[in-house]
Design a protein around this nucleic acid. Sequence first.
DNA 1: TGCATTTAAATGGCATTACCATTTAAACCA
DNA 2: TGGTTTAAATGGTAATGCCATTTAAATGCA
Lengths: 234, 234
Amino acid sequence: MVKFKTLERKRFSDEVAEQIKQHIINKQLKPGEKLASERELALEFGVSRPVIREALKILEYVGFLEVIPGSTGGSVVRKANPQLVSGTMEVMFQLGTLEIKELLEARRIVEKETARFAAIRATTEDLARIEQTISYMQININDPDVKTKFLEANDSFHTAVARAAKNQILLLNVNSLRQAVFNLIEKHNPGYKSINSALNYHQQIFEAIKARDGKAASTVMEEHLTSFENRLND
Amino acid sequence: MVKFKTLERKRFSDEVAEQIKQHIINKQLKPGEKLASERELALEFGVSRPVIREALKILEYVGFLEVIPGSTGGSVVRKANPQLVSGTMEVMFQLGTLEIKELLEARRIVEKETARFAAIRATTEDLARIEQTISYMQININDPDVKTKFLEANDSFHTAVARAAKNQILLLNVNSLRQAVFNLIEKHNPGYKSINSALNYHQQIFEAIKARDGKAASTVMEEHLTSFENRLND
DNA sequence: TGCATTTAAATGGCATTACCATTTAAACCA
DNA sequence: TGGTTTAAATGGTAATGCCATTTAAATGCA
């Protein structure tokens, strides 16, 4: 039995987006280069302007292009940006479950192992970066807007640790999971106890990483996140 | 000096997309639910239909929605889909921002921890499901199309183990990473040795899970995937 | 000439209208 | 009753027009 490919009629906008995307991936369109105007692209592809616009908006949203208005504006190819390209991971985590428990657990698991690798691979720059997030948290502990500062520093800390692990997927995973968690508990206002606890754990984790003690780093990270989870349950 | 927030005029389509996205994240819109028609949304938001369409296309592309034509069509909130994540990883790989080494490592890390939880939480149904994938592999080991059957059984095995861990996020993660790996090494044809090695490891992992030995399950899973990585390097 | 001003052109952003193809359900008829 | 036809709803696409912004060219003035 011969197998034929099912013919599927795709949307014009999807095909346009796909073609432009392929050109970018194949380096036929390089970062900084500008595409033709929407009106010209419409002529080239033989479709209407709204179709072109839908395609451009898609590619802009996922990070391939930047669409600039004005006389000399247009659609410019952006530099590769893994963070933007992979908001997809975060999207999936949001759609994946109604149970925040699962999200927290997954985060704990992934991040604890990431900390282990951070201890092994952190450069001096990584160490400095991690330490700085701790200082920042300490400095602002009496700031009137301590909550915002804390959340900032917390983000930076976990990102810095994940970055030290030298694995982009782990970094993306850690960031996406954390982001997904905080999206779901936005009402949560960290109290003085939470902040102090986090600060303390962050210091311990930093020391472990600095001492190249992967086992300790992973253990303390797990404790840190477990403690965070327990605090949420109250 | 008082600091004012710079007013930025965002595009309507971006704002519409953002609002819908937030509703999905807040679970005010759940997977399976259908949005109003484009014409109705245009009225609700007070903008034109093309603006709505641009927003919907963006959200569809990144995986939040599925837009279905026809009389009873519309925009439906999607379920989580590992394929979208692995697809994104593939793009990152093609753009040169991701190395396959990182992918393999991330997979090993996530899956080893997932196996640990599987050992703790697997039900008898889970055990049966896992065992069946092993039988399937054994039965077809002399099949002329053994490679295809092997890949099938391999997928089923790792999915079954992850499913036993009772965490949808981990399941999604495991499947995304495995799919991404196999997308990027498609040319790789598993030889007799690979298949036998995998079969052997799968059996050991199953025994460990059955014995509720989380430590062993995670250790053997890690060995299994390390061995797989080493085989790829040849 | 040189500088400031005005003007015109190009671009993306948006609205409106209209029509098509597909799909579904209601209305109809045998 | 059951198959057929019809109508309605939806997304897909096209076409046109106008607006706001930005830039460069044209203009005017000193």
